[in-house]
Amino acid sequence: MHGGAGTVWTGLPPGLLRMRRLLLVVWLGLLALGTGLLLGLLAGPAWALFALLPLASMLWGWVLLGRNWRSWRYTERADDLLISRGVLWREETVVPYGRMQLVEVTSGPVARHFGLASVQLHTAAAATDATIPGLDPAEAERLRDRLTELGEARSAGL
């Protein structure tokens, strides 16, 4: 939105949304099942309607995750990395390449199963919150290498 004309934004891969939605469905589904069974058996079938609450939040979460996923995007500009995210609480982060101290690529077991890896940039300021969650591992590594290379070329300390 603020990258100026001709900015090419990159979004997050659909795999991340799939993973998040699957996790949401699994956890809230289990919760709904547990609530329904427990209340239905112990307190009576009418109480089992409380299982609708997790189901409703599942629906809501399904939509929210989609919106949140769509809001994430980043672009590599000539001298800095720009990350934009958030729906209600919007946040845009600009990190000049020269300020990067460390680029980290991480991926947990679930993320690995879905073929995802996240990239995190660290500067000397702890408040710098520049994380790109859930990228394709090849893209994550490309980004890491490119950021490291650009960071070295423009290196500056504190």
């Binding site: 609480w89 919007r90 600009v94 300021a125």
Partner: peptide
């Protein structure tokens, strides 16, 4: 020269 990163935040 001391700025490490710049962020724009906006609540609803």
């Amino acid at each position: 020269a001391k700025v490490q990163s710049v962020r724009l935040t906006q609540g609803p």
